[in-house]
Nucleic acid binder design. Sequence first.
DNA 1: TGTCCACGTCT
DNA 2: AAGACGTGGAC
Length: 312
Amino acid sequence: MLQQTQVATVIPFFLRWMERFPDFASLAEADEEEVLRLWEGLGYYRRARSLRAIARRVMDDWGGNLPRDEEALLALPGVGPYTAGALLSLAFNVDVPALDGNVERVMTRLRDQDDPVDRPPAKRELRRQIEELIPTGRARDFNQALMELGALVCLPRRPLCPTCPWRDDCLALRRGTIEARPVKSPRPPQEKLRALTLLASREGAYLLVRHHRDERWAGLWEFPTVDDDGESLAVWLDAPRITWTKRGTVSHAFTRFRRTLTVFSCQVGQVRDGESPFGSRQTLWVRPEGLNDYPLSAGSRKTRDRWLAPEG
DNA sequence: TGTCCACGTCT
DNA sequence: AAGACGTGGAC
């Protein structure tokens, strides 16, 4: 969960998750729908499916225990260099680095490193430097301390240098380049998207469609949403007899996009077979009180909370 | 109802 | 290698 997601965000999800899946066995047996529902709102949903796949593999191939071996850990889905290092050092106290964003910041400042940290050469160099610093047999404490230092003291903006235990050793502090570290490659500009979302109701139930497993938001559900042309929906909805009512807009951001959804509601009459613009995607009619049972992507979640929440 | 930034893995 | 993958928070 902590991959790409900050601790404060993770905590409530983690507590719910651990209550439902206290061990690999319970997670391995769970169905994907439930796993995604508990992950709903955390983002990067591939992590949820990877975690379930890991649980199954740990049960099947490793006798229910995580392997204490870098190569075996890296072979698990969703486990990269950071996670492998974190597991080895924090769980098994093996003397290897756990290089996350916090540690990158601490180390590039300590050494006043100005290579872009999102490129492999800089990462290799940082790992090498950390290896030299790990006190033999103390990687668990050392790595946690380094991550905490980054999270609590060596902040991205306005770091608390006067209280830092490394203030006398920090090259960037001495040179006045603290706020300029770490250096990152320029990012592509944000793109704006517009789309239409339809609250289509029939006998008090609302239509949901499911994202394919190879799409964005794989496995999650949403209210029918199309790029801002509306034509494919109009076909499907028996257009001439539909009255569309504009409800308002919601916005959400993902990766490098920011998308504004214009939400319409309508009553749907007869749905004709073979005219769905959703192809082979699953569809479902759900009453408002049942909407919490399906994991929704962010735009549809905001739509639900605004217009279909039980109390509203 | 803005813009920018934070956060690892996979392809 | 460069882009895909989502959400929340600071300003």
